[in-house]
Simulated assay, not measured.
Amino acid sequence: MSMADKAARFAEMKRRGEPIAMLTAYDAPMARAEAAARVDILLVGDSVGTNMLGYASEQEVTLADMAHHTRAVRRGAPDAFVISDLPVATYETPTEAVANARVLAEAGADMVKFEGCRPAIVEALVGAGFAVCGHLGLEPQHHAEKRLKGKQAGEAHQLVEAALTMEKAGIAMLVLELIPEEVAEIVTQRLKVPTIGIGAGRATDGQVLVICDVLGYTKAAFRHNKRYAEVGETMEAAARAYVGDVHSKAFPAAANAFPMNKEQLPEFLASLA
């Protein structure tokens, strides 16, 4: 089945008014859990850099990083629909974009995503057989200041025009990040392809969040996010309890040890003598 054929079901979900649930996934255990939870789309985002790799920004993420994590996600969720980000400076020309998209597809991506209004890049990717997800609004790869985009009327109008331009070029999906709800609603109404919001309000065709934010890995609280767990606190508490048990010699206990066969033990001890 081609990439376009795999992506077609999301356009059908939009047509039927069925919300699309997307989450980022960065490794096999995450992917396995999300697939079991029936997440519609797993996004291997370049947010892996700041959330899992300790990078200062998404601009440090490499194509090798993205391919590595895409392969891990694919191994964890063999049947899931996976989108993978083209990292910064890997889609400056059509030729470069196609070559790098091929790397992600070979790693297991069903669709590739990139940031900004670049219709020529979309046309080249689609022409080469790739399904493409656009990304407008806040562009973490290109915008140093993480602030709401499209607040002013002129900027909002440009965003709508950019969305229409990208659709005409051939995108199959569009992520809208950190824009006013009203602007996201207009874009969603005017596009035939599904929109996926993050900090874009309630009117988009689907939602995406960063799994680390959902799980509460850190104490950072974002208005656009909803914390469904406090995994960061749980990890710290578990590590602290483990350290206490090791230091007090409570772990390992007899139940955690493997005794030697009673018939072999005397022979072993005699061999030492």
Rank of each mutant, 00 (worst) to 15 (best):
A4G: 03
A11W: 02
A11G: 07
E12F: 03
M13D: 05
M13I: 02
K14I: 09
R16A: 07
R16C: 02
P19K: 10
P19V: 01
A21W: 00
L23C: 11
L23V: 06
T24Y: 01
Y26W: 14
D27R: 10
A28L: 06
A31P: 05
E34V: 10
A35K: 12
R38Y: 07
V39Y: 01
D40Q: 08
I41K: 02
V44T: 14
V44S: 13
D46H: 09
V48D: 02
T50H: 08
N51V: 12
N51F: 11
L53H: 15
G54S: 13
Y55K: 15
A64W: 04
M66T: 02
M66R: 11
A67P: 02
A67M: 01
H68S: 03
R71L: 03
A72M: 05
A72K: 04
R74I: 08
R75L: 03
A77E: 01
D79R: 09
A80M: 14
I83Y: 14
D85S: 04
E92L: 13
E92G: 10
T93A: 11
P94A: 11
T95L: 13
A99W: 09
N100A: 08
A101T: 03
L104G: 09
A105N: 03
E106S: 13
A109G: 07
A109W: 05
M111D: 03
M111I: 00
M111N: 05
V112E: 06
K113P: 01
P119I: 01
A120E: 15
I121R: 02
C133F: 03
L136W: 09
P140K: 06
H142E: 12
A144W: 13
R147Q: 12
L148W: 07
K151I: 13
K151W: 07
H157A: 15
Q158D: 15
L159Q: 12
E161K: 15
A162M: 15
L164D: 06
M166K: 04
A169E: 08
A169D: 06
G170Y: 09
I171E: 07
A172F: 08
V175Q: 08
V175P: 09
L176M: 14
L176Q: 10
P180R: 07
P180T: 14
E181C: 03
E181V: 10
V183K: 08
V187F: 07
V187E: 08
V187M: 12
V187T: 11
T188A: 06
T188I: 09
T188W: 09
Q189P: 02
R190W: 07
L191P: 13
K192C: 10
G197D: 04
G197Y: 06
I198N: 02
A200H: 04
G201E: 05
A203T: 03
D205I: 04
G206M: 08
V208I: 15
L209D: 05
I211K: 01
L215A: 13
L215T: 00
G216T: 04
G216H: 00
K219V: 04
K219S: 05
A220K: 06
R223M: 04
Y228F: 14
A229M: 07
E230A: 14
M235A: 13
M235Y: 09
E236N: 07
A237Q: 08
A237P: 05
A237H: 09
A239M: 08
R240S: 08
A241M: 04
G244Q: 04
H247C: 00
H247P: 00
F251E: 04
P252M: 07
A255I: 02
N256E: 15
N256I: 00
M260S: 02
L265M: 05
L265P: 00
P266F: 02
F268N: 06
S271Q: 14
A273G: 14
A273L: 11
